[in-house]
């Protein structure tokens, strides 16, 4: 246990968090769970695929000059009519499905990670403040959270999308849309963190160890950060993993409503939205492979999240 981080011995949940991610307990529990190891390997593979998309993909699907309509709607290579190098077939624009998955994965992961990071930071911060200070601050923040919850993520995205577009004079750019998505997904998920953190803070802050920390003269922010945060980190991490998966899927849903990544720079979700139209037509590979990739990724992340939750919870050890 890190003395500097937890100087108060009264803490009921001795969780070593910063830098303690790979301490022996975690590592043993990780190695013991085969499913978790597989999930971790799959996740790692997906990350590698996303990072090195440019090296492994035969085509840059974001470059319209590389797409040839003559290659459109080719089936996977093992089916009749399949053609190298389009291993998993092509879509209606001649986009190689495998390349599109690799590049789309990158976009989806960026949206997911940044979105979650943004919402977690925002939510934890506001939740800590609300719970710790209470009173008017609490009321205001939680009322804002109510307003926030009232707007489904979809609506928030539409709103921000519209505002950004009007500010930028409709000069649209796929990276801008990506930023908008991160921002709107982040904005729509912070409430969960805030509520969780606030709830924990409300319970924890009356406990002796916090009072003790206060007594020895530690300033409020330090008390919160060092003592309350570690205790809520478990649930926050679990929410974060589930939200990572959720963020990726929300992006897909947004593209179903026409506000996701544009089809010229498709994310995994956009690919599914496009492929969705080909479900009845027999061109199953356009939706099946991106769908499979998304489901596998989300599944793996969720499994990791489950394991993490159990491992981080000392009472379950």
């Amino acid at each position: 246990m890190d003395e500097a981080l937890s100087p108060v011995p009264a803490s009921p949940k001795p969780v070593s968090w910063a830098g303690g991610f790979f301490d022996s307990d975690l590592w043993i529990s990780f190695k013991r769970s085969k499913v978790t190891v597989i999930a971790a390997i799959i996740t790692l593979l997906f990350f590698l695929l996303a990072i090195f998309a440019g090296l492994v993909a035969p085509q840059d699907p974001f470059d319209p000059a590389q797409l040839d309509l003559l290659n459109s709607r080719l089936p996977p290579i093992w089916q009749e009519g399949g053609q190298a190098p389009f291993v998993l077939g092509t879509d209606d624009q001649g986009r190689d499905i495998f390349s599109a998955i690799a590049y789309g994965l990158r976009i989806s992961l960026i949206v997911g990670f940044l979105g979650v990071l943004f919402s977690a930071v925002l939510g934890i911060g506001l939740g800590l403040i609300a719970g710790y200070f209470g009173g008017v601050t609490d009321a205001v923040i939680m009322r804002i959270a109510d307003v926030q919850l009232t707007f489904p993520a979809i609506l928030i995205a539409l709103l921000i999308d519209g505002v950004v577009k009007s500010v930028l004079g409709n000069q649209i750019d796929a990276w801008t849309i990506l930023g908008v998505l991160v921002f709107s997904i982040g904005l729509s998920f912070w409430v969960q963190y805030a509520r969780t953190v606030r709830g924990s803070v409300l319970v924890e802050k009356n406990k002796d160890y916090v009072a003790a920390a206060r007594l020895i003269g530690l300033p409020a922010p330090v008390v919160m950060l060092r003592h309350v945060l570690p205790n809520v980190l478990g649930p926050v991490l679990v929410i974060a993993t589930i939200n990572l998966a959720l963020a990726i899927i929300t992006e897909a849903t947004l593209s179903f409503l026409g506000s996701g990544m544009p089809p010229t720079m498709p994310s995994l979700g956009t690919l599914i939205r496009i492929g969705n139209d080909f479900l009845f037509s027999g061109e199953w590979w356009i939706v099946a492979f991106p769908g499979l990739a998304l489901a596998t990724l989300v599944l793996a992340i969720n499994l990791l999240g489950d394991w993490l939750r159990d491992a981080l919870n000392p009472r379950l050890r």
Binding site: P64, L67, L69, Q93, N170, D173, G258, P262, P263, T264
Partner: peptide, 24 residues
Amino acid sequence: EQICQAVVGMLARIGVKVNLNAQT
């Protein structure tokens, strides 16, 4: 939208870079 995407690809062939702004 697919027509526009195809046009973008075809114009890329004569060096014209088209940024597609497809909206509802």
